[in-house]
């Protein structure tokens, strides 16, 4: 299970993180997001150099709005407190790995 990040913890968990962070913007009602979850769970376990967290856009609409998220699933890579790239929509595992590695 990915760690849920909220408005209260986003600064600390994502922006101040030493490691790059992959943020999965998702919602319970979003089928493709549910589809993506198991793959991300696995990747989170396997990858030591990247942190993977989840933001539920229904609970955390402020974060979603701040980062201009308007389609989910939306994966945003943060490094050093800033967005470096994003990927929208369901992707197979090899493409996710490519996206994470940049």
């Amino acid at each position: 299970m990915l760690k849920e990040v909220t408005a209260a913890t986003f600064e600390n968990e994502v922006l101040q993180s030493d490691k790059p962070v992959l943020v999965d913007f998702n919602a319970d009602w979003c089928g493709p997001c549910q589809m993506l979850k198991p793959t991300l769970d696995k990747l989170a376990e396997e990858l030591d150099n990247v942190k993977v967290v989840s933001v539920n856009i229904d609970n955390e609409d402020e974060i979603a709005y701040k980062y201009n998220v308007s389609s989910i699933p939306c994966l945003v890579m943060f490094e050093g407190g800033a967005e470096v790239r994003r990927s929208v929509g369901l992707k197979p595992r090899p493409e996710l790995i490519k996206f994470i590695n940049g």
């Binding site: 201009n68 308007s70 389609s71 989910i72 929509g89």
Partner: peptide, 17 residues
């Protein structure tokens, strides 16, 4: 612009608007 204002699924992304 997919995910930045362009969408192909109203029931998926309507809530953002």
């Amino acid at each position: 612009l997919v995910g930045r204002g362009v969408s192909y699924c109203a029931t998926c992304d309507g809530a953002f608007y």
